[in-house]
Every structure is written in C-alpha cells, then in structure tokens.
C-alpha cells in the first residue's frame, strides 16, 4: 500500500483526483491533502508519505519550490495543466506526470508503474529540470523610480552610460533614465544585442550608425538618432569590438 498525499490549490482538482484514486483502494491509501506548497511541505515532513500527487502552479510555494524544501523525499507524480518544455523533459527522465484534465486510463498506467516500482525519483534531476527551463528572452526592462516602475523596450535603448555615482539609460527618442542597476547587472539583463565598449559605457549594437578608428586602438561610435551621439571606446575592449563588428 502506498501512503499518498494530494497537493493542489484547487479543491475541485483534489476531489476529482481523490475520486479517480478510489478505484485503487488495494494500492493507494490517501492520508492527506494540502492546498499549497507550504502546507504540502509541512505535511510531507510530518506524515512521510510514499507518494505525492503534486500540482506545479500553486500559491505560497509552487510545486518545484516545495520539493526544494523537503527533508523527506517521497515518490513524486506531477499532476498539472503545465504542458510546457520542462514537463516534457520530465518524461525523458522517467519522472511521471499526469496532464490535466486527468484521464483515468493514464492514471491506471501510473498506478501500474508504482506497483512495479519503476518510478525512481532522482530529486537532483527534478530540480535541474524545474529550474533550467530556458528563460524566455526578456524584451522589456522595468526600471524602479521611487515607488514606480517604468517599462522600457530593450530594443529602444540606445546606450547606457555611468558616471561616478549613477547609471543612466538613454533611449532612441533621447530620453534619459536614471537607474539603480549597476552596469554589470544591466549588461546581463540587456542581452546579446548589447556590448560594453568602455568601463562605463554599454551600447546597443543595432543602434550603431558608424564606427571610426581613433588613436591607440580605440574606436568612436556614432549612434543612430536625431541628435549626434559619439561614444568613445577604451582600448581594453578593442578585441571584443573588432570581433563583434567584424572590423
């Protein structure tokens, strides 16, 4: 007999799964239910179930975050509407999951697998799969200004320049935004269309109108836009610049 816990934030989903599992009283005994990740983690550590049926999107802790909090590791069967990259990769790692709406036939297979003892959860694998979902490329930057956040399209950023104290973002329509982000943090957020040309300057490669050679292996970048903007690179970035612009 498998001591089983159902963790799902939706009462209707829990009761439906309970009803579907009632067909397997010889294999499954339900010892509890939890309505979110936090309750779930508490119950698991307390009741030490053999199996949990786990939803992924839940308030408090989601399914993955909850697994990260566990001291005791039961067999995990995901029950989710989450038909996305990460969940498809689960299959290849013989991690079992049920897609909502749950089909009775599919559940029967899961029970068979449980009884044959073929579900072997590798928690490290789950963790990797769960948190390695490729982040969708952000196209918008949110800048905190006091209690507000201004949104800026990343493609509309012309360049970023830091002075001694502050970092400023200049957009293609010649607006200037001050930000608390460091240049290093911005370099990461802005992605591959941007590059550092100076200790204190990041430019949008797609907004370069012209590059002129200057002294000492430095370059002068003339940026697109109504106003003329010239940015001088420093020598230490010369190699990266040459590579990026094939010059």
């Amino acid at each position: 007999m498998f001591k089983t816990l159902i963790i799902d934030d939706e009462p209707l989903a829990r009761s439906r799964l309970r009803r579907l599992l009632a067909a397997y009283t010889d294999a499954i005994v339900i010892i509890g239910e939890a309505a979110n990740g936090e309750e779930g983690a508490e119950l698991i550590n307390l009741l030490k179930p053999d199996v949990i049926f786990l939803d992924i999107e839940m308030p408090m802790l989601n399914g993955f975050e909850m697994l990260d909090k566990l001291e005791f590791h039961p067999i995990v069967i995901f029950a989710t509407a989450y038909d996305q990259y990460a969940i498809r990769a689960f299959e290849e790692n013989s991690i079992d999951y049920l897609l909502k709406p749950i089909e009775a036939d599919r559940l029967a297979k899961t029970i068979q697998k449980l009884q044959k003892n073929v579900i072997k959860n590798d928690f490290e694998a789950i963790r990797q799969l769960a948190f390695n979902e490729p982040a969708k490329k952000a196209t918008t930057l949110s800048l905190q200004i006091g209690e507000r956040f201004v949104l800026i399209k990343i493609a509309d950023i012309n360049y970023v320049e830091a002075d001694e104290k502050y970092v400023f973002i200049y957009t293609n329509d010649h607006k200037k935004y001050i930000t608390d982000f460091t240049l290093k943090a911005l370099e990461e957020k802005l992605g591959e269309d941007f590059m550092r040309i100076h200790r204190s300057i990041i430019i949008n490669n797609n907004q370069v109108a012209e590059i002129r050679r200057s002294f000492n292996g430095a370059f002068v970048f003339i940026m697109k836009g109504a106003q003329e903007i010239r940015l001088k690179s420093s020598r230490s970035y010369a190699n990266e610049i040459r590579k990026a612009f094939e010059i």
Partner: peptide
C-alpha cells in the same frame, strides 16, 4: 520583431487556464 508584436495583439486565453478549468468541470460533473 513586428510579427512578434502583432502576435501580442492577438488575444489569447492562457491554455493553462483552459485545461485547469476543464479539469474542474470534470471534477464537478458527478
């Protein structure tokens, strides 16, 4: 890029919401 932007204009119900709602209906039927 503008194709992606046009796509943003296309209204969509989050499929995740749809499947969850259908699961709820399956739960309610009995």
């Amino acid at each position: 890029r503008s194709n992606a932007e046009l796509e943003a204009l296309q209204a969509k119900i989050n499929p995740h919401f749809l499947y969850n709602a259908l699961n709820s209906i399956a739960g309610l039927i009995k």
